[in-house]
Amino acid sequence: MRTAFHKYRHVFLVGVQSNLVYRWNFAIRATFSLFHLIAAVTLWRAAFAGKTDIGGFSLAETLTYFVTLMVLQFFIGAFNEDYQVSEEIRNGLINQFLLKPVNYFAYRFTLFVSARTISGLLVLVPLALVMPFLHEYLTLPSDPWRLWMGLPALAMSAVIQFGIAFCFGLLSFWFLEIQSFVILSFAVETVLGGQVFPLDLMPAGLFRLSQFLPYYYQMYFPAAILTGRIATPAEAAVGLGIQACWVVALLGLIHVLWTRGLRRHTAVGG
């Protein structure tokens, strides 16, 4: 256990260093995210004109939700992990991991954590710059339970985000090109993850259905706990239970794809 910790600690540190090389890419990406935020603020402010609430939430609560999503995206969102895994399989770089005492999933997940640590910290810079213009629109509930339940929800969301990306990467054992799968899945995740609109604004039946899908737990669920869209601890506890089930299911699926994929894999060269 101690050896494993040391092994992946080094992977984490290497990941931090290599991601610091791309700090400008992350900073530019974060700045462009602010443009998306401005578009969302413009749209929702216009939709709220003459109204005090939409779906039971004020303009400030709705915009807080979108700001929270933007920040979470940089802390727990999967960026291009699917392509990285896919590249390593297609180029044969994965072979080196098959010969070493390294768990490939753990290795990639550690790199994901290090990358999100850097991108998450970097997004705070442009956010701090626009805070003087944004703060009047922000309102966060102060119930302590939101933090205690929000943190495990965030951790599991990160695993789900990474797990789905990892599964798509593993598809490269079967398909040469995974880009169209990834983009299609991205579109589904964007809607059902609550990034286009808060999911509770959907018709009740659709919203209920979305709560049983993994996408709900990718981003909307932790954001809804932290921003007050989930009203009670009991509701959050049920969500945490379903989210844990999805984590287990995804880990199981990864195991199956990995073992079956390896059977198809051919390592050439030395």
């Binding site: 749209l43 216009a46 939709a47 709220f48 004109a49 109204k51 939409i54 779906g55 809607v191 286009v196 609109f197 604004l201 959907m202 018709p203």
Partner: peptide, 15 residues
């Protein structure tokens, strides 16, 4: 289209 549909479930006009 879903975004437009969802917003107009709750409001009649945007700007």
């Amino acid at each position: 289209l879903m975004l437009i549909g969802v917003i107009y479930r709750h409001t009649d006009s945007i700007a």
